[in-house]
Design a protein around this nucleic acid. Structure first.
Lengths: 211, 211
DNA sequence: CGCCTGGATGGCACGTTGTGCCATATCCGC
DNA sequence: GCGGATATGGCACAACGTGCCATCCAGGCG
């Protein structure tokens, strides 16, 4: 996996985005989203207010990349996994892996997400971001699942499997965030939720083609 | 079921809320939420801008009662249903009934919801309301299901069943709204989605106590 | 009937959110 | 180095959302 080393401008943009996102997450987790102004985030990230709004549509959106990153890891693990698993097995396995603390995804990231989720309980707009990220991931999940299933599947069936897996992940993260469980407990919880929710779908017995 | 006839003030408040909600829904469905200002809605409903914000926190929130009404009917049918059904059967049945056009819930209401859902595809804030309504209904569903299941159930299991049923309803409505299917098709679609998503849960065989 | 009290409404001012526009600074390709 | 492209900042402005006070009206009481 060679990295083509994007241009300096690109890297700086990515760095600024991360800084803004991190600053927003910490401010939201610490003092709540309601009492954090967009200017607070911009100042904390070292950019102007105008630049902040070039990166994010609303102040709550600033934490979306952090949340979406987790989903992206899930999809990566899903496509990179072994081919001899059933679809639910592959979903369960990749979810577990994506939530297992690792050097590049430390437990601190999960704790930060817990802070965001708890802040979201007191702020509808922040909660909406959480739901939107999951809605997007549900749409991204469908084509990946179609690839995994191989044979032609009823689109509605596909949609239901994606929704089931996605809902499992969401409920697991919400339950974990509301609890005091350590970061290591998240993976198993997600695996269980996804397993139970996908158990009844017709895609259950469909094996992945060895391509 | 006697109606205690609330005071004139109460009835007027309810009427104003309905008018605002209906005006917002029609404007959103007709010209999109983005290009509709809060003042447009207020003027269309015959109230001042200040009064509008006494009824709703944001302009998108104005359509929430319309969407939440459907959920409420679902819960009503669920609690009023016969007692000898399994939990998934009761969920499937009540969902079908709640979506079947009736004199008090005409097909036009479903068409209005379709307009809102289609407008929500182009407006993140409006879509967020749809998701929030479902999030709330997921939380309301859990205690009702606990009542139905009767015996003590693992809270997480309960949460998963509620999430599964709720996700089924959401996917069904989104699929129906995106299609050209007539209002009569919504009920069967929802029944199918809920049946498949709840098929794998452990609550499946739990029967309702005859109280 | 007249008064009076509580709550719904409207008007106004204000802070915040989010965007269009232009000037400036910085990076990338030639 | 030089010129085009692009990120950033500053400014003005429309819309959002709220606090505050004045007004109006329903409903209770003498």
């Amino acid at each position: 996996m060679t990295t083509p080393r994007p241009s300096l401008t690109e890297r700086r943009k990515a760095a600024t985005l991360n800084e803004i996102s991190l600053a927003a997450a910490q401010l939201f987790a610490h003092q709540g989203a309601e009492s954090t102004t967009a200017e607070d985030i911009a100042r904390s990230a070292g950019v102007s207010l105008r630049t902040f709004y070039r990166y994010f549509r609303t102040k709550e959106d600033a934490v979306a990349p952090l949340l979406a990153n987790g989903v992206q890891h899930w999809l990566d693990e899903l496509t990179a996994g072994p081919g001899e698993l059933t679809v639910p097995q592959a979903l369960e396995r990749s979810a577990g892996l994506a939530l297992t603390p690792a050097p590049e995804r430390p437990a601190a990231a999960l704790e930060l997400m817990r802070g965001i989720l708890r802040a979201a309980q007191h702020d509808p707009d922040l909660l909406a971001v959480w739901h939107r990220v999951h809605h997007d991931s549900e749409l991204e999940l469908a084509p990946v699942l179609a690839e995994l299933a191989g044979t032609d599947v009823d689109p509605l069936e596909l949609r239901l499997v994606a929704a089931a897996a996605n809902t499992g992940m969401r409920v697991a993260m919400e339950s974990w965030a509301a609890s005091e469980a350590p970061p290591e407990a998240a993976a198993e919880l997600a695996a269980r939720c996804i397993r139970e929710l996908t158990a009844g779908l017709h895609l259950w017995t469909t094996a992945r083609p060895s391509n």
